[in-house]
């Protein structure tokens, strides 16, 4: 059974199409990352899953039940982006309030609250008013309240927003621990490096459309691109290599280096043999790594060239924005 499944999910706000037929599946125990620029529809998608926003068309299920129902929300923990806690609460009283809304019995709350706050590292300040907290502490509290009732699915919208590097590492470790204990995490983040580090699968939304989806390995799959440099004073046999069917391009940096692109079924081995046969000394051979950021930038640019310039001219944002 999929933990999250959407089929052709569509949301329109008047003439604005916030989601255009999004279909995705999240399996149990996965950490699933959702990427996209601001206004891509990430938060709208999450809000539809939780019933905060009504879908225009399509289907969405959570934990095998229709998304957004009261019953299913009991099994989900959610950290919204740009959340604002009631200023008059302390961390303890807020957790107690939210725990009551989740139906957690009082004795369990009394035990769980300090435990959960300890987990996110703010137990020492749990009786201080939230208005005295730093942004990072509020973020940690946000994560704690999402974990309070031990949900099966945890949806986190920008969980490390405003958290210092040390705190971000702790949150990543926490997510890994939660995953090990069988929880499913649906993560929405702008920090591509973090997503790459912890997510099993990633989807990229662009202007309401799902443009890429797969495992990190699938998305960052290499296309056979190498940078080669010979010993000083030796020149690279560009024509000879090109005659073997490779595409060779001289690079300005580092000086004397070339970029060799493989084509279908080709490997770098024939090139190395040719260099050895000619008595040339290889000093540098590196396969070009593709990061998730590269994939993301390329995907966004391919899907909609010049989209950033258009957005700056003022595209309308859907209600409940932040995505």
């Amino acid at each position: 059974m999929s933990i999250i499944e959407t089929r052709n999910l569509t949301k329109t706000y008047g003439r604005i199409e916030a989601l255009k037929g999004v279909s995705l599946r999240v399996e149990k125990g996965q950490i699933y990352g959702l990427l996209g620029q601001n206004g891509a529809g990430k938060t709208t998608l999450i809000k539809i899953l939780l019933g905060l926003v009504r879908r225009t068309d399509g289907e969405a299920t959570l934990l095998g039940e229709p998304a957004g129902t009261v019953r299913v929300r009991r099994r989900v923990g959610y950290l919204p982006e740009d959340h604002q806690f009631p200023y008059y609460h302390t961390a303890y009283s807020l957790m107690d309030f939210y725990g009551s809304l989740y139906g957690v019995p009082a004795p369990v709350r009394r035990r769980r609250i300090p435990e959960t706050l300890e987990l996110v590292g703010i137990a020492g300040r749990m009786h201080s008013k939230i208005k005295t907290y730093s942004k990072g502490m509020k973020q940690r509290l946000g994560i704690a309240q999402a974990l309070m009732h031990d949900p099966e699915l945890i949806i986190l919208d920008e969980p490390t927003d405003g958290v210092d590097p040390m705190g971000r590492k702790e949150i990543r470790e926490l997510m890994a621990t939660l995953k090990k204990s069988g929880h499913t995490i649906f993560l929405n983040s702008h920090l591509l490096g973090e997503v790459e580090m912890i997510c099993d699968r990633v989807a990229i939304l662009q202007r309401g459309q799902l443009v890429r989806e797969g495992t990190i390995a699938e998305l960052t799959q290499q296309k056979g691109l190498y940078v080669v440099r010979l010993a000083e004073g030796q020149s690279f046999p560009i024509e000879a290599v090109a005659q073997q069917g490779y595409t060779v391009r001289p690079l300005s940096e580092p000086p004397g280096a070339v970029e060799i692109a493989m084509h279908d079924g080709q490997t770098i081995d024939p090139v190395i043999r040719l260099l050895v046969e000619r008595g040339l000394s290889l000093r540098h051979l590196v396969e070009q790594k593709q990061t998730l950021e590269d994939v993301f930038m390329k995907t966004v640019e391919e899907a909609e060239p010049g989209v950033d310039r258009q957005r700056r001219r003022g595209a309308a944002r859907p209600v409940g924005g932040g995505n």
Binding site: L50, V70, Y78, L101
Partner: peptide, 18 residues
Amino acid sequence: PNMLRKGSIDLLLCKPIG
């Protein structure tokens, strides 16, 4: 109005209450 503030209402509506 405080309950309905953006960022505040999400925290309540995601709870199992109508």
